[in-house]
Design a binder for these strands. Sequence first.
DNA 1: CCGGATCCAATCTGATACTG
DNA 2: CAGTATCAGATTGGATCCGG
Lengths: 107, 107
Amino acid sequence: MAGKWSVQILVAAAQGPIRFTELERGIEGISRRMLTLTLRNLERDGLVTRTVHATVPPKVEYELTPVALELHQTLQRLTDWAENNRVYIAEARATYDAEHQPELLDA
Amino acid sequence: MAGKWSVQILVAAAQGPIRFTELERGIEGISRRMLTLTLRNLERDGLVTRTVHATVPPKVEYELTPVALELHQTLQRLTDWAENNRVYIAEARATYDAEHQPELLDA
DNA sequence: CCGGATCCAATCTGATACTG
DNA sequence: CAGTATCAGATTGGATCCGG
């Protein structure tokens, strides 16, 4: 599971330790289930550490490991590329779709 | 569809125009169907061009666009990161699994 | 507050067989 | 050579309910 949410978690946690609920609020559209699952996978791969504070109410913080911080940096370039070429790709898609679906007009 | 095969196609086509069958042979485990589908998506997004040569037998060449070549370069860094940290991740996984599944020994 | 468990729908993929 | 069509199976994701 490379996971469609992993990248966003890496970005959200890049600035330092962050709580479960903060992640949930910070990542648009993620469900609790997917947040938990993705965090577990990242933890399993040694990319995040999970720290449970025995307080009331409970408090769990996630923090990126050094390896994950490196990954975050290289991902940043990908994000930049995506941002720089968003319009180009959107236009390419529109053109392609216009040329390959005109049959629908026959109806 | 970011597509699990897209990256490998980008790598295989990075050196210049390449034919359908060459791609099929060069990418381990890909089916004809997935190769076709992934190429169509890349073409739709303006990342590859498709050139049909009207010869016998047919010859179709795929070539990366400039935008895709940029993408290939940034992906290269990701690949490097993955290679550098493969062992670290494998060990983290083994450790994690050992600590979270010992209940199975009760049987 | 944090997260596990279950159910269910959508999506993705491979195998196979058939064409210009 | 370079695809397309169809079908079945695996993955993935959201909704929901329950527990420490």
